[in-house]
Amino acid sequence: MEETGDAVKEKKLVFVTVGTTCFDALVRAADAQDLKGELLKRGYTHLLIQMGRGSYIPTKSAGEDGSLAVDYFTFSSSIADHLRSASLVISHAGSGSIFETLRLGKPLIVVVNEDLMDNHQSELAEELAERKHLYCARPQNLCHTIASMNLESLLPYCPGDATPIAKLINRFLGFPDD
């Protein structure tokens, strides 16, 4: 909670992550005024951008006068704490970031990097979006996705049990059953 004049306002953090990649299009989209305005309209108070190897530098803001507080960093040894404290996660389409966020039960928008060749990541993001576990966007329609999203419509992600497959592989390789 933060003090804002007479009222106490709950901190609602949006965490943007590009992982170890360079994804300036996502960082630039997250830094756009219309997107920040849309986040404010939806009650978010803070925007934290992990910009990776990118060269685009977002605009920092202390969040005075009812604006969104914005900060950024390049890398962290672990983003787990940022994910845990987030009210909404906007991520690149890396499977590690996607599944770590879904396991934490956080609302997620995955932004596909269309500049990648043979973008198998988009297939994963689109499949999980079709199953209603997350929203899938492109940098150019991220603001529209935020404006039209209904987080209550997302379904929790329940990881499958890999034990039967592991046992089958072990049997095939000649290892004894446990």
Score class of each variant (00 low, 15 high):
123 E>F: 07
112 V>F: 00
110 V>W: 07
111 V>N: 04
147 A>Y: 01
131 R>V: 00
148 S>E: 13
98 I>E: 08
86 A>E: 11
139 P>E: 04
147 A>S: 15
140 Q>K: 09
117 M>L: 13
135 Y>F: 15
96 G>I: 11
129 A>L: 06
105 G>V: 03
138 R>Y: 13
107 P>S: 04
111 V>D: 05
150 N>E: 15
144 H>K: 14
144 H>V: 09
138 R>D: 03
131 R>G: 07
125 A>H: 03
129 A>Q: 11
110 V>R: 02
92 H>I: 06
116 L>H: 05
150 N>I: 06
138 R>T: 12
123 E>I: 09
103 R>K: 14
121 Q>T: 10
137 A>C: 09
127 E>V: 07
140 Q>A: 11
95 S>T: 15
108 L>C: 11
107 P>D: 06
147 A>D: 04
98 I>W: 08
102 L>H: 06
131 R>M: 12
121 Q>V: 08
140 Q>L: 02
145 T>L: 01
125 A>V: 04
104 L>N: 09
130 E>V: 00
95 S>R: 07
110 V>H: 06
91 S>G: 12
139 P>K: 02
115 D>T: 14
96 G>H: 13
126 E>A: 09
136 C>P: 05
98 I>H: 06
139 P>A: 12
143 C>P: 00
146 I>V: 15
111 V>I: 08
138 R>F: 10
138 R>P: 00
114 E>D: 14
100 E>C: 03
134 L>K: 02
109 I>E: 02
111 V>K: 02
143 C>Q: 08
143 C>G: 03
133 H>S: 04
94 G>P: 10
145 T>H: 01
92 H>M: 04
107 P>C: 04
116 L>I: 12
123 E>V: 09
115 D>K: 09
152 E>I: 00
85 S>E: 15
139 P>F: 03
105 G>Q: 05
108 L>W: 10
154 L>W: 11
138 R>S: 12
147 A>F: 00
98 I>R: 05
113 N>K: 02
104 L>V: 02
95 S>Q: 12
134 L>F: 06
130 E>L: 12
91 S>A: 15
116 L>Y: 04
124 L>A: 09
114 E>M: 02
129 A>T: 12
103 R>F: 08
125 A>C: 07
125 A>N: 03
118 D>E: 14
123 E>Y: 10
127 E>A: 14
97 S>Y: 08
132 K>N: 14
114 E>Q: 12
92 H>T: 04
114 E>P: 00
123 E>M: 07
124 L>F: 11
139 P>H: 03
103 R>L: 13
147 A>K: 13
131 R>Y: 03
113 N>Q: 10
115 D>Y: 00
124 L>Q: 12
127 E>R: 14
145 T>N: 02
117 M>R: 11
131 R>A: 14
98 I>K: 05
153 S>A: 15
89 V>M: 04
